[in-house]
Design a protein around this nucleic acid. Structure first.
Length: 407
DNA sequence: AAAGGACCCAACCGCGCATCG
DNA sequence: CCGATGCGCGGTTGGGTCCTT
């Protein structure tokens, strides 16, 4: 049985908005605001429209300072970079592009940008193969973020990169930057998509494959596998859990602590852990630590570093700013100032990623199960895993984390 | 000039989550 | 603790416009 419709579909107008309707909606909202209730709004102003339709019309078209069309190269680059980093979280991407709506960006991506990138990829692949065969000089490789004129690359594309014969060596582009929300006086670079690995990731996301991957020391999950939406994950072979599905869906602390768990792998990975510590030492997330670590059923240390970037650079700033941490004897739960909504919103924004945090002597994982948390019960549908102190000791750098033990 | 395919984008739809009582 | 309701999001669709043959 489906849910009840949000309005009486028989008695509401659908389809394109007339100038009169636009004018009514616009003038009302400009004078009175939305009143906090979109559903009731159309009745108030005598519009025979569904409340959701009014909301959409306002947000995507009528509200002030909306830009339509004419995406700049900088915007293209930013969209691509963010897409690599966080996928199709259009609202988050839109938040980085003033005047753009999520709908606009989504349409632009689906109708133009994606095709442009894939088209370039195919074209360049074919051209590179031809040039390679003929021993010709490499030229025009990337433009509009992906294809720009290369001044330093005269390399045979196959020889240039042993990881993928498809990709010639890429010149370095200027990376766009966005404000650092935790330190407003600084700017941070958006994860770039102008390097080989990022473009590769992007194209995999778009459905491309790199059949040579098994020749290097990287596991590239087949995109036809169970978690097809997470095809960007790369994981060093020697740290790849034997069964990620089992580990993350049986929700067993024992499994999480097993030697096959990436948690255990993390413990043996000082460099990665140092990165975590670095971010937490630089007040990106307040006096505590919270990292989104897992995505769906697959996780990896490789992904972890990317997830850090997501959290620090790309997350909605309000969500970060509101975070604070509560401690108890054995757990630490990330919360915002007034309710748990920020925490759960953060999880919401990142789909089924999870939260990892530590404080005191222990480490805790909070992660949503397949049943979403509902109501105000944060722990409902969640599983917690408390890592005992001796396990924490395995985490290189944990003991030096300044928040450890501080309540 | 006409037909039909391709493209584009505003709008719709359903779902997950937050809030409230 | 639970159900009802509203909001926001991402995916999809329908139809207008453009392009190609």
């Amino acid at each position: 049985m489906g849910r009840a419709p949000c309005c009486d579909k028989a008695n509401v107008k659908r389809g394109p908005w007339s100038p009169e309707e636009d004018s009514k909606l616009k003038s009302y909202i400009e004078q009175h605001g939305t009143g906090g209730n979109w559903i009731a709004l159309p009745q108030k102003i005598g519009l025979k429209r569904c409340g959701k339709s009014c909301r959409l019309r306002w947000l995507n078209y009528l509200r002030p300072n909306i830009k339509h069309g004419g995406f700049s190269e900088e915007e293209d680059n930013l969209i691509c970079s963010l897409y690599i980093s966080i996928g199709s979280r259009w609202s988050i991407i839109a938040a980085q592009l003033p005047g753009r709506t999520d709908n606009d960006i989504k349409n632009y991506w689906n109708t133009r940008l994606k095709k442009k990138l894939l088209g370039k990829h195919r074209k360049e692949h074919q051209a590179a193969a031809r040039r390679s065969a003929a021993g010709l000089k490499q030229q025009e490789i990337i433009k509009r973020g992906l294809i720009i004129s290369s001044s330093n690359s005269m390399v045979n594309p196959v020889a240039a990169d042993s990881q993928s014969p498809y990709w010639p060596e890429l010149p370095v582009l200027q990376v766009p930057s966005i404000p650092n929300y935790s330190s407003p006086n600084q700017e941070v670079a958006v994860p770039s998509f102008n390097d080989h690995a990022s473009i590769r990731k992007l194209l995999i996301k778009l459905g491309g494959r790199f059949h040579s991957d098994h020749h290097d020391n990287v596991v590239q999950p087949n995109i036809q596998d169970v978690y097809s939406s997470n095809a960007d994950i790369q994981l060093p072979v020697d740290q790849f859990p034997s069964s990620t599905h089992q580990i993350y869906h049986e929700e067993s602390a024992a499994n999480m602590l097993s030697s096959a768990s990436p948690i255990a792998a993390l413990a043996s990975s000082p460099d990665l852990f140092a990165q975590i510590n670095h971010f937490n030492n630089t007040d990106h997330a307040g006096d505590g630590a919270a990292l989104h670590m897992f995505q769906g059923g697959q996780s990896s240390n490789y992904l972890l570093t990317e997830e850090l970037k997501d959290i620090v650079y790309n997350i909605n700033p309000e969500k970060l700013d509101g975070l604070e941490f509560l401690y108890s004897e054995d757990i630490m739960i990330m919360m915002n100032d007034s309710s748990i909504s920020s925490t759960t919103s953060t999880n919401t924004s990142y789909g089924d990623r999870s939260t990892i945090g530590w404080g005191g002597d222990q480490m805790q994982l909070v992660y949503p199960t397949s049943v979403a948390a509902s109501g105000s019960d944060y722990h409902q549908g969640m599983q917690r895993m408390i890592m005992p102190q001796d396990q924490c000791a395995n985490f290189n750098g944990l003991s030096s984390y300044p928040g450890a033990g501080v309540q």
